[in-house]
Simulated assay, not measured.
Amino acid sequence: MSAKLDDDTGTSQTVRVQLKLRELIVGGELKAGSRIAELTLVDLLGASRTPIRMALVRLQEEGLLEALPNGGFAVKDFSEADIHDAIEVRGTLEGLAARLAAERGVTSVLLAEARDCIARIDELLAQPELSEDSFNGYVEQNGRFHDLLSEMAGSDLVARQLERAKTLPFASPNGFVLARSTGPDARDTLVVAQAQHRAVLDAIVQREGARAESLMREHARIAHQNLREALQSHQSLQRLPGASLIRRRATR
């Protein structure tokens, strides 16, 4: 399959190159440690060197690439400790977003959207076992809930930092959800996460900032549990986006 980018006048070439490169890295086509040459990408993606160079810098800022001493970039790998820290950063920022939402108040429109999101997840989890379709639906609505939380904070600064924190595949709200989809207790984990969604939203509505922050930080700990279990299961790890970037070593 060709990796060349289709023309799209509505999207800048730099952004399209960035998205495609991220896809190649997370999908494992560009391996951890491999050097990325601009000229190779010109042929691979059918783009000029300027947007490619800019896209590489942006992916370095995201943390997926690292600059080499003699120039150029290489695909970065991640230790288990790195992933743990990335999840902690995301949980801390989401806790802040929840507290700000509670303290500042949320519009009725956003609250209605969040309640709709929770209702849709309830419907998906109503069955005793999850189908592939219902699981995919959960992933979609879970991502939507976390996006709404960011919006409810009412802070462009917090939203930008949260978006950056979620760019690493394993730090996103759905990163390790995907890895746990085949386990016998997959639904049970999602039920617990859903209860936390509901509790966080209730704390925001009740204007209980400290409680909302604490609940959201606790919610991120599910990802830590999923990380530990995914690393113990080859089958689960294969379902994790970016699994090829994980470097197994003792936690520092």
Rank of each mutant, 00 (worst) to 15 (best):
I222W: 01
R160L: 12
V57M: 13
H197N: 00
G33P: 10
I25A: 05
H146W: 15
A101E: 04
E38Q: 10
P51Y: 02
Q13I: 00
G33H: 07
E113S: 07
G183W: 01
G137D: 07
T11K: 09
R249M: 09
L201Y: 05
D8Y: 02
G72W: 09
E88A: 14
L96M: 12
F170V: 02
A97I: 11
E80M: 09
R104L: 03
L45F: 12
A119L: 08
G242F: 06
Q235D: 14
R248G: 08
S214V: 04
E140R: 09
I87S: 05
S12E: 14
D8M: 12
E23N: 14
S108A: 15
A230Q: 04
L39R: 15
K4E: 10
I246A: 12
Q60E: 15
E94V: 04
F176H: 06
N70D: 13
L125I: 00
V139K: 02
G242N: 13
L245G: 03
F170D: 01
L130Q: 03
A119R: 07
H146T: 01
A98M: 11
T40S: 15
L125P: 02
G28W: 14
T50Y: 10
E23F: 08
L44Y: 06
G154L: 01
N142E: 03
A74Q: 14
S181H: 04
R207N: 07
L240A: 04
L5G: 04
R228G: 02
E62D: 15
E88L: 10
A81G: 05
L130F: 00
S34N: 08
T182P: 01
S233M: 07
V192F: 08
D202P: 01
L130S: 02
R187L: 00
G154M: 03
E163F: 02
A32W: 11
G72V: 08
R239I: 00
N142T: 03
L227N: 07
A102E: 12
R249G: 05
L24V: 13
A153S: 15
L215I: 06
E113P: 03
R221I: 07
L124D: 02
A250G: 07
L21S: 13
E61F: 00
V15I: 11
E140G: 00
R58C: 00
G46L: 07
E123S: 10
Q161S: 02
K166W: 15
T11D: 11
A223H: 03
T40Q: 14
C117G: 10
V191M: 03
S131P: 00
V42R: 13
E129K: 01
L39C: 04
A195K: 07
R249D: 05
H234W: 11
S48G: 11
L100K: 07
M1H: 14
V26L: 04
I36C: 13
A37Y: 05
D156M: 01
Q238M: 11
R207Q: 12
L59T: 15
A97E: 11
L148Q: 09
S233F: 04
D6K: 06
P51D: 06
R221P: 03
R160C: 05
R221Y: 08
L110F: 02
L100P: 00
S244Y: 11
P128V: 01
G242L: 05
Q161R: 11
A86L: 08
A98S: 13
L149R: 07
